[in-house]
Simulated scan of single mutants.
Amino acid sequence: MKFTTNLAALALAGLASAQYDQASKPFQLVLQSKDKTVNGQKLAACHVGAAIESLCLTETASPSKPDPIKPVAFRFNTSSNAGGEPPAWGILTYDLPAQPVIPSSVEFWIDPIANFALPLLYPGSGSGSQSLVFDEKDLLAVQGYVDYSVNPPKAGNTTEFYRWYACPTYYAGYQYPALTWALGEGKPETPGCAKVDVKRVFV
């Protein structure tokens, strides 16, 4: 669905103060790819720090995860105050098993020397949570309304972007094959990355 520039800007500005109080039914995230080694794999939550998890692939071995692990259930939280037309902005959430359970949401962590962002699950759903959408095919996307490929950059209609890759990753000493987000149109520079779409499958 396309929005005018002013409406899109207002909606994006409102995300900072939105309360994501509407949780979806649980679902798994399944990768779709032309690369047969990752196609059909599901995502799990892999430990990378105190109550911090990366979105790792369940079947691919790595130094920090030598054996297959089970996928986990995620939810998509939207705001009851958001209004507007679908697809609705929201945040990807996960309940980290602990005593008590730790609600977590995805934020994009960026290393300034890399050309991709690493989606990580951090405790809570604060202002750093990455706003995302699921399209009509249940594919996960990031929306934007500025075209940075022209000079000067031009604001226009809201567009869905699908710059997901499965890559070998390194964070705080942990090494996992995990979901990443390319910063720009180019492929992440790390060898072994595979282009993927991320599909929501309700459980």
Rank of each mutant, 00 (worst) to 15 (best):
residue 1 M to R: 13
residue 58 T to E: 02
residue 87 P to D: 04
residue 115 N to H: 05
residue 151 N to D: 11
residue 61 A to M: 01
residue 74 F to E: 06
residue 1 M to F: 11
residue 74 F to A: 00
residue 143 Q to F: 06
residue 154 K to Y: 08
residue 13 A to D: 12
residue 165 Y to N: 00
residue 160 E to K: 12
residue 169 T to K: 07
residue 72 V to C: 03
residue 22 Q to R: 15
residue 162 Y to L: 08
residue 97 P to H: 08
residue 27 F to P: 10
residue 36 K to P: 08
residue 103 P to Y: 01
residue 84 G to W: 01
residue 170 Y to K: 14
residue 136 E to L: 10
residue 113 I to D: 13
residue 58 T to L: 02
residue 17 S to F: 14
residue 66 P to F: 06
residue 102 I to S: 01
residue 135 D to I: 04
residue 137 K to C: 13
residue 115 N to D: 14
residue 4 T to F: 09
residue 141 A to C: 09
residue 149 S to R: 11
residue 73 A to D: 11
residue 162 Y to G: 05
residue 142 V to L: 14
residue 51 A to I: 10
residue 11 A to L: 14
residue 146 V to G: 02
residue 75 R to M: 09
residue 122 Y to I: 11
residue 78 T to K: 05
residue 183 L to E: 01
residue 118 L to C: 00
residue 45 A to R: 02
residue 90 G to V: 04
residue 100 P to V: 03
residue 93 T to A: 06
residue 171 Y to M: 07
residue 192 G to K: 08
residue 104 S to N: 04
residue 93 T to Y: 02
residue 37 T to I: 07
residue 118 L to D: 01
residue 15 L to I: 10
residue 186 G to W: 08
residue 28 Q to A: 11
residue 75 R to C: 11
residue 159 T to G: 05
residue 114 A to Q: 12
residue 164 W to D: 03
residue 120 L to M: 09
residue 92 L to I: 05
residue 173 G to W: 00
residue 173 G to Y: 06
residue 61 A to S: 15
residue 152 P to T: 08
